[in-house]
């Protein structure tokens, strides 16, 4: 039951599992918001060296919900897991659930480049693919010349 360190690796392996067992593989996403008491206990267990008082105060203030993605195929018994506590990852993870959803539905895969562009811009801005591609070149141009001018001025 491997737990992957990166969501990319999880997505890749889940995709392969889904290709092998398209009709039986299921993906469960667990959003776990633990009870404050339990969360404090878990924190203590994970970091036994730090002082209890500071831990307790941190546990009260900091959010500690987690999102766990689990791909499971009951026929072969394969489980692929990924866990995170970062809110910034939610959008990207649900987007990868979408790509896996396409595979479940036996839809053709979207071209890799388009996918990469989508992931790069983030799920908030899926539309301006062409704009994103053009902006780096635009900004690089003036910046490059600007640097050159500065250097010339210094000399």
């Amino acid at each position: 039951m491997p737990t992957f360190k990166t969501s990319e690796e999880w997505l890749k392996q889940s995709s392969l599992l889904l290709k092998a067992r398209p009709s039986t593989t299921r993906i469960t996403t667990k959003y776990n918001n633990p009870h404050p008491d339990k969360a404090a206990k878990i924190l203590k267990r994970k970091r036994p060296t730090t002082e209890e008082e500071t831990d307790a105060s941190k546990a009260d203030s900091s959010p500690k919900a987690t999102l766990t993605l689990k791909t499971f195929d009951p026929i072969s018994g394969v489980v692929l897991k990924y866990e995170t506590d970062k809110a910034a990852e939610i959008g990207r993870l649900i987007a990868s659930l979408g790509t896996l959803g396409r595979e479940m539905a036996a839809l053709p895969e979207i071209a890799q480049e388009a996918l990469a562009a989508k992931e790069g811009t983030g799920t908030n801005t899926p539309v301006p693919e062409t704009i994103v591609k053009s902006t780096p070149t635009d900004t690089k141009g003036p910046q490059g010349t600007g640097n050159k001018k500065k250097k010339k001025g210094k000399k």
Partner: peptide, 14 residues
């Protein structure tokens, strides 16, 4: 979120 704790399970499958 209101109750302060609890889990939500989301599953997708063909």
């Amino acid at each position: 979120h209101k109750s302060g704790h609890g889990s939500i399970f989301l599953t997708q499958k063909r």
